[in-house]
Design a binder for these strands. Structure first.
Lengths: 328, 328
DNA sequence: CGGGTTTGCGGGAACGTTCCCGCAAACAAA
DNA sequence: TTTGTTTGCGGGAACGTTCCCGCAAACCCG
């Protein structure tokens, strides 16, 4: 119940040393004999010492915290959640804390971080614009276009296009010549949604395949999805469904199997937005695994780099951890 | 690009006052004339002043941060995500930051918070146990049973049982006398999962109804769900499906509608774990809306209370924001 | 053995706040 | 006028670190 933690001075007193000695012993710097260093370390964790972060921050004017901005999109939350965990893990490794930024957060609070990671920021997002305007070191995961975009210090991107083409090629190699795209009708179209549609259309053109695009609302009801799948299969004679929204692939499988169709035999299903529990790892669905945890960790690493050297100019990195999982 | 923020001293110099005066003017305390207070406030935000949190924390030995522990469960992430946003909003109102605790976080870091909110902590969770052991003020959302449970300072619970009974009663009032429970086979059975099953069994007994429990794996494949639904409907002759896992209600609707059955007419569907985009707000599905954002905000409020008065003894609160949305 | 260099450690200031005082001026009560 | 109280503000210390110094003792080399 001891509500006051041991300080560096307690350790010093205990050993008859000075706070300077203790500090440098614990910090690794300075010239200290090895025996003393070991002794200090030992008593430090005997007393349950843990450095006061506020004091350190005040002194070194580095907060040790990164902000994480997550867009308030109802779908694909699972991806963001995993991403957030990845950020947290990467941050712990680099001795950062992660604080959550929700939309509507007053930019005031943003000053208490060393930098922020914004995942899929939509162009109109005022918080991100405010952060950039205030000169907070910011890393964008996925391209950010919008006010202040020239001040984004780092951008991390995955090879979406290449991976999507791999998936489409794989369907083709399995003889599926009429893949339909169940695209998301994205009001605040992120760069990802736009790119995805273009990739599909391009691919169709290059292969002389007639594109079949079926738009699905962002928060479609099950009934909506049933009819979308029905129109793709029955009317459009699709022999493969390519889903743009997380969860839709698994849901489409439900629809097809309930109708007596066997996925992998009668039809194929693929997902461009994998990483859902029911999609990635499902042997019947070809999916892109964005590896959200590793993605998040990579974002942290990038942020750390630009925080350490803010004048390096905008840096762009590719994330190589994403992969495709091909079915059949 | 000014990387050094204005301090309280800058304001003082600018106005020829002392730091004490500026501090108390901004903090609201002290005896200051109203004109001076206004003047100080004005120049403060002219200079873009924002208080240095580290300095304040050091002085008042209050960090201004709460930790949020989220269990690493693959399903119902959407609920946790919304809950997290709710915590963030509530925290902002009470001038807290929220830092994310993932499992595997070294308890060391936990010292940098004023308290932590643990949502649905499983009994074996070592991080939560460590937090309690270290005397960190902890609020549990849902009952925590496990090592150190007597040190939990606050518990927030929703009226799960009552709400679930309401849902079952509603089904009965619509003439559904054979409701089947699609229960989650929860390895680390949370208090919620256990309570839910008991509620259903109790209710059946009281109404002289034969219980129909169909266990579904935590991360069931679509194919698993299809067969679970099929066995409930075809073999068990269920006239209503009650789903325990988030997302299963919407998915069951997909299955039924694909088979040509109309939800709300041929069969009913209800969800005990609402708050998913496709369930709550779906007029065909009776669902419990846990109101995750408000739930999170309430958790913050409770934590704030126990942090302010840690010696008040364990406090238990009911969350009254949850509701049922009845279909038909 | 005398000069210089290295080693091991301590003193003190600083980071930006808050808060306890003190103190003069103004004001009220006697 | 005298005494007491309120008002408005400032000085200084403290929170726990880190980091720049300084300074003895030990060591090295010729």
């Amino acid at each position: 119940m001891a509500r006051t933690r041991a300080t560096i001075l307690d350790i010093a007193r205990e050993l008859g040393l000075s706070k300077t000695t203790v500090s440098s012993a614990l910090g690794g710097s300075g010239r200290i004999s090895e025996e003393k260093r070991a002794l200090i370390r030992e008593t430090a964790d005997r007393l349950g010492y843990v450095a006061n972060r506020a004091a350190r921050s005040l002194r070194v004017s580095r907060v040790g915290t990164i902000g994480l901005y997550i867009p308030p999109i109802a779908r694909s939350l699972a991806f963001y959640m995993d991403f957030a965990f990845g950020v947290t893990e990467g941050a712990a490794a680099a001795d950062y804390d992660v604080t959550l930024f929700a939309r509507g957060l007053t930019p005031q609070r943003a000053f208490h971080v060393d930098g922020v990671i914004a995942i899929d920021p939509s162009p109109g997002e005022p918080l991100v614009a405010a952060l950039l305007d205030d000169g907070i070191p910011t890393v964008s995961v996925g391209r950010y276009t919008g006010p202040g975009e020239e001040r984004v210090l780092g951008t991390l991107e995955a090879h979406h296009t290449e991976l999507q083409i791999q998936v489409l090629d794989h369907l083709l190699s399995r003889g599926r010549k009429r893949p339909a795209l169940l695209a998301v009708d994205d009001a605040i179209s992120s760069s990802w949604a736009v790119d995805t549609l273009n990739t599909y259309l391009d691919w169709c053109r290059r292969h002389g395949i007639e594109p079949r695009v079926h738009e699905v609302e962002g928060n479609a009801t099950p009934r909506d999805l049933v009819s979308a799948v029905a129109s793709a299969v029955d009317t459009g004679h699709a022999d493969a469904l390519v889903c743009g929204a997380q969860g839709h692939a698994a849901q489409s499988q439900l629809v097809l199997e309930s109708r007596g169709l066997t996925v992998g035999k009668d039809l194929d299903i693929a997902s461009f937005a994998g990483a859902a529990a029911l999609e990635t790892g499902n042997p019947l669905i070809s999916a892109i695994d964005l590896a959200p945890r590793e993605y998040g960790a990579a974002a942290t690493e990038l942020l750390d780099a630009v925080v350490r050297d803010p004048d390096a100019g905008p840096v762009h990195r590719w994330f190589d951890g994403a992969s495709v999982q091909l079915a059949g």
